[in-house]
Design a binder for these strands. Structure first.
Length: 888
RNA sequence: AGGCGGAUAGCUCAGUCGGUAGAGCGCAGCUCUUACACAGCUGUUGUCGCGGGUUCGAUCCCCGCUCCGCCUACCA
């Protein structure tokens, strides 16, 4: 280095590696381009996770980012702890969603997907899938997620599809799967059946209309029914009242005329009717209502369907036929009005079931579908959680889980779409036999007729997702991965798919593998915007994670998510939080920039941390050990937020604010001073440990720093690294804490007296504990407090009290002591208040008798400490008054 | 209707196995002190939602209430 360089961004000691700002864009690109596969360690304890597979249709959103960050923190932590980590990536085929996307694309090209026919359409979906390539996968990589990409799976892969088929057949053979005509939820827009969990409820203000049904025999006498769906009147097959309802007892068995139609229907009694609701008379429309269907079958009413699959009224709907549902409702009201059958209408807020994909109101519909019998599966799934085999974090979710398990209903798994796993069932045109088979048949297995047709439906995407933890590992084959990594260790997911996915994986896992699919389930919350609103496209408040990563760096983004991820609480993400995390990354970076200046590369780590003698070195080592212990405890409980905060605080408040400043004292010593060597080694050892602790949260910057320093043999995080200390330092004596309190005291006074931070103040150090050597403290006081030993033989000055001693600061005559006087007044008052509180407690007999002895003891000790503190403050105050008196 | 969660500093949130309430951001003042102004130092801010109870002691445990959010549910 012959040239004297300006201290600009390019001036470095390490061959251009150390600008003052961490260049996240460049470093991330470099590291990602190296594409190292996460290491595997054959002999080590396994730790495995499967990623919640994102949709192929998807783009990385905040939910993914949070989910993946948490998993990656755990994966990297376990790798450093020495475990053999397998984290399996993959995507799911997203049946309805993907079909919708391709349908829409085709429509844009002027093609009606139905005209293509099934095979061509499915081929188009595959083409589309190939065209988006690894889209979301690349985004996941950018987030730094260290997945085992060689294990990547797709739910429509041949192997996975085979597993799905095997499961279907097995369930059928075991009688756990059946085909039946049932009421199901139907989406008139997606034109498919939905399972119960795919229907969400939205509060809407509807209308409750009161309609008169004239008695078939009688002069104008009528029963009044309250309904929200007047358009279904044309499908009414009965009216029902509660059997105990005195008002209507005499009408049971009579007949009424259906408005809008000339049919005559009976009045029946059924205890499902709530006499309190409306008029207490319920119209029964078995084909268009779940409850009505139940009641209808109890009374043998049969069915009458007036709504087509697409939601329009069919010819049986009489005057309403041909109209879409909503138009039919309006029309029905008009007719009722003009027929004078409409008694009154009132606004009625209620929850309406909508398709969770497209928000279309679902229609209850009678149809032939495939169902999984859930009750037997649910029993084992409940047991797995109640016995503690599977643990939920936070545990509060257990209740929600039971709630669903205990009210389980059979699962409708067939979908009337083309993209997905086609149901392996054939029906025979000749003998009517239904065959469910592992291999495609050529003829009917029962009668050998070639007239067989395959069920056109495909399976619910969640049916295949339920197999994810074991089918990704090769099930039903007994693969080495399955043997080694199943059951998986941890599942990290959002609460919104607890029923959709988690519960079903538990059921299927137990049923098919006889093992729990995972030991622990970490359930995280939703990421909301800074105002606490859910991010949705319609609100337009969606924050793109990639944008934040571009702006602040991936590390900062990950850290901000981790810091905010306190369990059981939604995350409000704001740009300010990401910015704060970016500042932290910068702080970390610059700490190492300093280290690079003073610590030569060949500096060894501390050989015997237990024998360190520098006060600052001992202190930072003991803080490191404590931080590391708490960090491990936090991560053992999946408290990534706590672990992140520990790293944040250790790095910033302890390492940077105090240790680095203190280390400068030792670094400035002569080259051969052993304390200098010890401090350089401590910087190296602690720096290295710090990178380890930070690495799960900040993979990029820590890898870059580790590369620059070659601290470890490989890159950070690739080797078992944590607790690199072979030997733990003993408890540090208070020396450094004493330095901190001395420095603090001087700094306070400096501020109050308005003395510039850089101006040196001559001072005398008065220590009241026996055997303390002022020489131990002076080097640190010089640098951290900017004071110098007074040359006066009889020092006089302002008292700066600290525990067991004080400093006399020779400030000269020009300072104004009045500010300091009032500050000390406040301090004295504060200590006195506290003293009164504790003393008051100690004077109460019942406290002394009933409180635990250690609490009483602690209070007694505190009284002494407070009294001493007060003494110091009072002495300082008196002395300031003296000065004030003099200067007047 | 039932269940769950939340209510703590101006804002966003930690926390206390019951024994002096913390962070980040903000705000005020002073500083470019040879890692960092994306910084440093100092300071400022709280009837810990309301009402009862248990306790020597409650912000923390129990009961009730209010408000907010979410989930489940066929009240037409």
């Amino acid at each position: 280095m012959s040239d004297i360089q300006d201290d600009d961004a390019q001036a470095t000691e390490e061959g251009g590696d150390f600008p003052t700002r961490f260049d996240s864009t460049r470093v991330e690109a470099e590291i990602l381009s190296r594409r190292q596969a996460p290491p595997s360690r054959k002999g080590a304890p396994p730790f495995s996770m499967v990623v919640p597979p994102p949709n192929i249709t998807g783009r990385l959103h905040m939910g993914h980012a949070l989910n993946l960050t948490i998993q990656d923190v755990m994966a990297r932590y376990h790798r450093m702890a020495g475990d053999d980590v397998l984290w399996v990536p993959g995507v799911d085929h997203a049946g309805i969603a993907a079909q919708n996307v391709v349908e829409k694309k085709l429509r844009a090209e002027g093609i009606d997907f139905k005209s293509l026919g099934r095979e061509d359409f499915v081929a188009r979906v595959w083409e589309w899938k190939d065209s988006i390539g690894s889209g979301i996968g690349d985004q996941i990589r950018r987030l730094g997620a260290s997945l085992a990409w060689d294990h990547e799976r797709f739910t429509m892969d041949p192997g996975f599809s085979q597993a799905v088929r095997e499961v279907f057949v097995r369930l059928y053979e075991d009688g756990a799967l059946y085909r039946a005509e049932r009421m199901i939820h139907w989406c008139p827009r997606c034109l498919t059946a939905l399972s119960d969990v795919e229907v969400t409820h939205q509060d809407r203000v509807g209308e409750l209309v009161y309609v008169q049904y004239l008695l078939a025999e009688g002069e104008g006498e009528a029963l009044v029914v309250a309904t929200t769906r007047p358009e279904t009147i044309v499908a009414d097959l009965a009216l029902a009242v509660h059997p105990d309802d005195e008002r209507y007892r005499s009408y049971v068995g009579k007949k009424v005329r259906v408005p809008l139609s000339d049919r005559v229907i009976p009045v029946v009694a059924d205890s499902a009717v709530d006499p309190q609701f409306g008029t207490g008379v319920l119209k029964i429309t078995p084909s268009h209502s779940m409850v009505d269907f139940e009641i209808g079958s109890r009374h043998g009413l049969g069915t009458l369907s007036v709504i087509e699959a697409d939601g329009t009224m069919n010819p049986l709907a009489g005057p309403l036929s041909g109209l879409p549902r909503d138009k039919a409702r309006a029309r029905a009201l008009e007719i009722l009005e003009s027929d004078e059958r409409l008694e009154r209408r009132e606004p009625y807020p209620h929850a309406v079931g909508v398709c969770y994909r497209c928000q279309t109101e679902v229609e209850p519909r009678l149809s032939l579908q495939w169902f999984v019998r859930m009750a037997p599966l649910a029993a084992r799934a409940r047991e797995a959680v109640s016995s503690g085999q599977i643990r939920f974090f936070p545990a509060t979710w257990v209740k929600t889980y039971y709630e669903w398990i205990d009210n389980i209903r059979d699962w409708c798994v067939s979908r009337q779409i083309w993209w997905g796993h086609r149901i392996p069932a054939w029906s025979c045109g000749a003998c009517g036999h239904l065959a469910v088979l592992r291999e495609d048949p050529a003829v009917c297995p029962a009668c050998k007729s070639p007239d067989i047709t395959r069920d056109p439906d495909v399976l619910d995407t969640w049916f295949s997702s339920a197999l994810w933890p074991f089918a990704t590992l090769g099930w039903p084959e007994e693969t080495p991965d399955l043997a080694r990594f199943y059951p998986t260790s941890l599942l990290v997911t959002g609460f919104d798919i607890l029923f959709f996915w988690v519960a079903r994986m538990i059921m299927m896992g137990l049923y098919l593998t006889d093992k729990i699919p995972f030991r622990d389930v970490y359930i995280h919350a939703l990421v909301r915007d800074e105002f606490g609103q859910k991010m949705t496209k319609s609100r337009g408040n969606v924050v793109d994670p990639l944008e934040l990563m571009d702006r602040f760096g991936t590390d900062a983004f990950r850290l901000s998510l981790a810091l905010l991820a306190s369990p059981g609480r939604d995350i409000r993400l704001s740009v300010e939080r990401v910015e704060a995390a970016r500042n932290f990354v910068s702080k970390l970076w610059n700490a190492f920039r300093f280290i690079s200046r003073v610590v030569p590369r060949e500096t060894p780590s501390l050989p015997r941390p237990g024998e360190v003698r520098g006060v600052a070195n001992r202190w930072i080592l003991s803080e490191l050990v404590r931080t590391e212990r708490e960090y491990r405890e936090a991560l053992a409980n999946y408290r990534v937020d706590e672990a992140a905060l520990l790293v944040y605080r250790f790095t910033w408040s302890l390492f940077c604010d105090w240790y680095l400043e203190a280390a400068k004292v030792d670094v400035d010593r002569e080259a051969h001073d052993p304390l200098r060597q010890e401090t350089l080694s401590t910087l190296r050892t602690v720096g290295s440990a710090l990178l380890d602790l930070a690495h799960p949260f900040l993979p990029f910057v820590t890898e870059e720093l580790s590369r620059i320093f070659a601290f470890s043999n490989g890159s950070v995080g690739s080797e078992p690294a944590l607790l690199g200390l072979a030997e733990l330092p003993g408890a540090a004596p208070d020396d450094f804490e004493r330095i901190r309190s001395m420095v603090g005291s001087v700094r306070q006074i400096r501020t109050v007296m308005k003395i510039p931070p850089t101006q040196e103040i001559p001072a005398a150090l008065m220590l009241s504990l026996p055997g303390e050597d002022p020489a131990l403290f002076w080097p640190f006081l010089r640098r951290l407090a900017r004071i110098v030993p007074s040359s006066s033989p009889n020092p006089r000055g302002l008292r700066a009290p600290f525990r067991d001693g004080h400093l006399l600061l020779e400030l000269g005559d020009l300072v104004d002591f009045s500010q300091e006087a009032s500050r000390l007044d406040r301090e004295v008052a504060r200590v006195e208040a506290r003293l009164d509180e504790v003393a008051g407690r100690l004077s109460r007999e019942d406290f002394l008798q009933k409180a635990p002895p250690e609490v009483v003891e602690k209070d007694r000790a505190q009284i002494l400490a407070l009294a001493e503190e007060k003494e110091g403050l009072v002495a300082a105050r008196e002395q300031v008054r003296e000065f004030l008196g003099e200067s007047r």
